[in-house]
């Protein structure tokens, strides 16, 4: 990779942008954890990278937009993937276009419809994302605004990223927790948009094909939520 530009540094990885194989690419390099034994660290990192790449592929097969993968290099602790152009992190999009604005119900509904349907697709295939936040979803900003009413449009405008904590064989409880993590993160990141989670949740239920499985997730979700409240009260 030539002319790499560091664009972000997370808790686990550095992200670089640059041309690779003639394409604008993003390299996610997991760093060495010095507090771990080097061999153990290398093994865990390799497993995490493979798991993340596999989850990106599986999500794509389930009809969820994810970046294309160009190279998975466990020796370099890196995944080389498509840099999604003309997109912004959903968190920034909401902050700029919804928070503190009036007349934004259509837009909130649009996001609810898109994310609800996508998370339902993921869960229906027994996958969980593991870290559903508006920082781990990109919003493609390239087409005209007039189409905020279209379902297929709502599903194709969002690109899920950061599958570092994803699981492929998840239980009902995992799915409930996945939703709960999203609810908590929306409450703290977007407290000015209080209806967002309920709109996502509404469309999640509407789009979940297997209704009895969906009922199980809902029941579990209520338990998880109650447990969470109790924990909050205790502090």
């Amino acid at each position: 990779m030539q002319d790499l530009e560091l664009i972000a540094q997370g808790a686990e990885a550095r992200l670089y942008k640059g041309l690779y194989l003639g394409r604008m690419s993003l390299v996610k390099e997991r760093f060495v954890k010095n507090y771990r034994h080097p061999e153990l660290d290398a093994r865990l990192t390799k497993d995490r990278i493979k798991a993340e790449a596999r989850a990106i592929i599986r999500a794509k097969s389930a009809g969820i937009a994810t970046p294309a993968l160009y190279l998975v290099d466990v020796e370099r602790r890196s995944i080389y993937m498509e840099y999604v152009e003309n997109a912004i992190v959903l968190k920034d999009f909401i902050d700029e276009n919804i928070s503190g604005k009036t007349d934004v119900d259509d837009l909130v509904e649009f996001i609810g419809r898109g994310l609800g349907a996508l998370i339902a697709k993921l869960h229906a295939k027994h996958m969980i994302h593991g870290d559903l936040t508006t920082s781990n979803i990109l919003f493609k900003n390239d087409s005209v605004e007039s189409s905020y009413n279209d379902q297929s449009e709502a599903e194709t405008r969002f690109v899920m990223i950061d599958f570092g904590l994803a699981r492929l064989d998840s239980t009902v409880e995992d799915k409930a927790v996945d939703l709960y993590v999203l609810e908590r993160s929306l409450l703290s990141a977007h407290s000015e948009v209080p209806t967002l989670f309920s709109r996502i949740f509404h469309h999640y239920q509407k789009h979940y094909q297997n209704k009895s499985q969906c009922e199980q997730v809902l029941a579990k979700y209520k338990q998880v939520q109650a447990r969470g409240r109790k924990r909050l009260m205790i502090g």
């Binding site: 794509k60 389930a62 009809g63 937009a65 993968l69 190279l71 080389y80 599903e155 194709t156």
Partner: peptide, 20 residues
């Protein structure tokens, strides 16, 4: 699958498979 091609180009799906 068809589902995949609604959200991604054919070449992007293929290179992702090759990479993994």
């Amino acid at each position: 699958s068809k589902d995949e091609l609604c959200i991604s180009s054919l070449v992007n799906v293929i290179v992702s498979r090759i990479s993994c």
